[in-house]
Design a protein around this nucleic acid. Structure first.
Lengths: 109, 109
DNA sequence: TTAATTGATTGTAATATTGCGATGAATAAG
DNA sequence: CTTATTCATCGCAATATTACAATCAATTAA
């Protein structure tokens, strides 16, 4: 196995899990945080900022791009990355919806 | 390799990534959602609710317990699970803090 | 006591993830 | 044209994750 049984869950559950997974690595958290601060930056900046090899950064950027959270535009020989505002808001909304339905009760089983 | 280089990131980045990872699987999303609805339930209910084997559910419960998001109390031969309100709020606060610093700009690179 | 129920744990197989060196493609600089 | 720069991609090795059957421990029911 080692393969998630996606077919037994709802579309929403799979999507939300996928969003979480996209951010489930400190390097990707760090990349997003840097993009939040810098507004936009090239791949090389991230390689210096974090202490990971260029190939590794490129791979993390690809995962973030796959879920649509960031986008990159080629500028000559370098690539400029930035957060996609629309997808960012979608993420935030989905996370909010997930955390919302908690009716405050401090007692448990 | 296959091992995250946690030492090059901040405590906060590692913690947040860990929180995301705890929820980065549809089964664990589904478990939490069921606990939100049912308030509390035993392991066997989850095995029926989701279509996964008991051992698999038990493993996912363990991961959620490890990050403190849920707790289980033994009731005879069964175990009753519920969400820990304190940790739940911590999660929500951490997620909020992460998503907050986005100054709305619809133009990108 | 004996048998049944419940859930944790162990072991195993399959797949995914992480990280990086090496290489390749594209553009810029000389 | 040649070289340098920048980043993506490929391939590899190590580790992690997912899923489950089998088993174990604890409790309850008979």
């Amino acid at each position: 196995m080692g393969l998630t049984k996606a077919e037994i869950f709802t579309e929403k559950q799979n999507k939300l899990a996928q969003m979480m997974k996209a951010l489930a690595h400190p390097a990707r958290i760090a990349i997003i945080q840097h993009l939040l601060k810098a507004q936009a930056c090239i791949c090389g900046d991230l390689v210096e900022e974090l202490g990971l090899a260029q190939a590794t950064i490129s791979q993390h950027l690809k995962e973030l791009k796959t879920v649509g959270l960031i986008q990159g535009t080629i500028e000559g020989t370098s690539v400029c990355y930035c957060i996609d505002p629309k997808v960012w808001k979608q993420f935030r909304a989905a996370f909010d919806t997930f955390f919302e339905p908690y009716f405050n009760k401090d007692t448990c089983c």
